[in-house]
Amino acid sequence: MNDSPLGLFITWTVYGTFLPGDARHWRHRTGGEQPSSAGLQRWNQQRLNHPVVLLNDDMRQVVNDSIAGMTDFRDWTIWNIQARTNHVHIVVSAPGYRPALVRDQMKAQATRGLRRSFPVFVDRPVWTTKGDVQYLDREADIETCVRYLTEAQDRKGRDQ
């Protein structure tokens, strides 16, 4: 497997959203796409330690700005950032960096920005653990992901 792909398509979710069993869509860390299961989703909802806080427009802007500032400093190329109400998508090129590190640093920077600006996020998780990282090895793959973020996200209805 390529350790430094041309680009990365990174996704993570807001704490408490897209729980295992979710009817809209969920991915198992090692098993990929999974079918819905109302019982599994209920069980996971009951185990949440904090209420779900969806991102409003101001929060989404803080996420976008925090990540853009950090990636600018690192000299990474952001092709697109889409902070949604319940998840974040990023298409980025970060040559020479481990993909999980890129994801984790962007999540940490977005968390810092949110906690600095919105007290509701202090002393509680903001995101679910980890997230999805897909390798993009061709320019066409980057273009496809950017098009998905700019054209398809609003049509999917997954923000609520």
Score class of each variant (00 low, 15 high):
51 P>F: 00
60 R>N: 08
148 Y>A: 07
45 Q>Y: 08
42 R>P: 00
18 F>A: 13
67 I>W: 09
32 G>H: 08
73 F>L: 03
63 V>W: 14
115 R>Y: 03
108 A>E: 08
36 S>M: 08
98 R>M: 05
79 W>R: 13
80 N>Q: 15
35 P>K: 04
47 R>L: 12
126 V>I: 10
38 A>D: 13
40 L>N: 03
84 R>I: 09
126 V>R: 02
151 E>C: 09
46 Q>V: 00
55 L>R: 07
115 R>T: 02
2 N>F: 09
151 E>F: 06
88 V>K: 00
135 Y>M: 08
100 A>N: 11
57 D>S: 14
108 A>H: 01
17 T>K: 07
61 Q>I: 07
14 V>H: 00
76 W>Q: 10
106 M>Q: 05
23 A>W: 13
106 M>W: 00
89 H>L: 02
1 M>S: 10
50 H>N: 09
91 V>F: 05
34 Q>F: 01
19 L>K: 13
9 F>Y: 06
86 N>C: 15
98 R>S: 01
139 E>R: 11
154 D>N: 15
97 Y>P: 02
60 R>T: 08
41 Q>E: 14
57 D>K: 14
61 Q>N: 10
120 V>R: 03
77 T>I: 10
61 Q>G: 01
47 R>C: 08
141 D>P: 04
118 F>Q: 03
47 R>T: 04
31 G>A: 12
124 R>S: 04
141 D>F: 03
17 T>L: 10
117 S>T: 09
42 R>C: 01
88 V>Q: 01
51 P>W: 01
101 L>N: 11
55 L>C: 13
57 D>L: 14
110 A>S: 12
153 Q>A: 03
47 R>K: 15
38 A>M: 05
147 R>E: 02
81 I>N: 05
10 I>S: 10
30 T>S: 12
102 V>H: 01
114 L>G: 08
1 M>R: 11
8 L>N: 06
124 R>N: 07
22 D>S: 14
106 M>D: 01
94 A>V: 13
96 G>Q: 08
53 V>G: 05
7 G>N: 09
66 S>M: 11
88 V>M: 08
38 A>R: 11
119 P>A: 11
125 P>R: 05
113 G>Q: 09
52 V>I: 15
125 P>M: 01
63 V>I: 15
9 F>K: 03
152 A>W: 01
49 N>R: 15
77 T>H: 12
79 W>H: 15
140 A>E: 11
126 V>L: 03
85 T>N: 06
72 D>R: 07
10 I>Y: 10
100 A>S: 13
45 Q>A: 06
85 T>R: 13
92 V>W: 02
127 W>K: 05
127 W>N: 02
71 T>E: 05
62 V>L: 00
37 S>H: 04
105 Q>E: 14
29 R>A: 05
151 E>N: 11
25 H>L: 13
64 N>K: 12
69 G>L: 00
130 K>T: 10
152 A>I: 05
141 D>V: 02
93 S>P: 12
8 L>M: 11
111 T>V: 03
131 G>F: 09
63 V>H: 12
142 I>R: 02
74 R>K: 14
131 G>I: 10
23 A>Q: 15
117 S>M: 12
123 D>Y: 06
60 R>K: 15
105 Q>Y: 02
54 L>H: 04
129 T>D: 14
66 S>Y: 09
96 G>C: 08
1 M>E: 04
102 V>P: 07
151 E>I: 00
10 I>N: 12
38 A>P: 09
18 F>Y: 15
139 E>G: 03
111 T>Y: 02
85 T>D: 08
65 D>A: 14
100 A>I: 08
